[in-house]
Design a protein around this nucleic acid. Sequence first.
DNA 1: CTAACATATGAACAGATGTTCATATGTTTT
DNA 2: AAAACATATGAACATCTGTTCATATGTTAG
Lengths: 127, 127
Amino acid sequence: MAKRDHAEVCAEVCTHPEILEKVAPEMPDEERLYDLAELFKVFGDTTRIRILYVLFESEMCVCDIAELLNMTQSAISHQLRILKQAHLVRSRRDGKTVFYALDDDHVRTVIGQGMEHIEEKHGRRKA
Amino acid sequence: MAKRDHAEVCAEVCTHPEILEKVAPEMPDEERLYDLAELFKVFGDTTRIRILYVLFESEMCVCDIAELLNMTQSAISHQLRILKQAHLVRSRRDGKTVFYALDDDHVRTVIGQGMEHIEEKHGRRKA
DNA sequence: CTAACATATGAACAGATGTTCATATGTTTT
DNA sequence: AAAACATATGAACATCTGTTCATATGTTAG
């Protein structure tokens, strides 16, 4: 037993294999982690972030959002669909127009934390 | 003044233009919003989320992470670079090995809120 | 210095993503 | 019913993203 698979050598040498055995069972299901990444993917687009910010202020129809963000109605509609599927916005129909609003308080928290993070790390004003 | 550009008709008709004027000035700089989206983009990948989760437990070297997630050392290293650029992890060298750890408490908060969100919306256990 | 090892990085490729364009759906008005 | 309007959606296209492969960098041991 002089040698094993080359790929596995490190795990036995470079640090503590007992950590691996401790951490592994603590990991959430693959599916949960996948869903979580999918959720953040939704936040990870400028257009969608801008839409969410706009909706912080008040509910709004597709056309207003498009006007406000200076984008196509189609583009906004596509993005709203994604936001809705992620349960970040909800919609309400009133005649011809459809109003969108934030669906969830987590949106504010998550975005707030994100903002705090970048202001702390990026935009250091003083020492 | 019977008609204007077709594209702008909606904004004057479908809802309240005064909202547009109220909301527009409340929007953060384009640059801030861009940075925010960039940050969430970093969270929006399964591999990186898994890395962050692993680091919840303890600091760890590249090789251990690769082993734990059953991925290439190269792939992990690439992702760690992205996480580091986003100030989500920091690294410390000890001889040949480099240890990575969470750089920020916002990471825990953001991921926590994300988890809460999906558990609430997705994984409804009962009515 | 050289060998061995842990990590980093550049190029390339496949797959995912956002916008546009054309058009469909659904609602109100006449 | 038809016209007008707000919104939704499918296909196509260009761009971005993550992994792999090969190799470079940096550190320690001999």
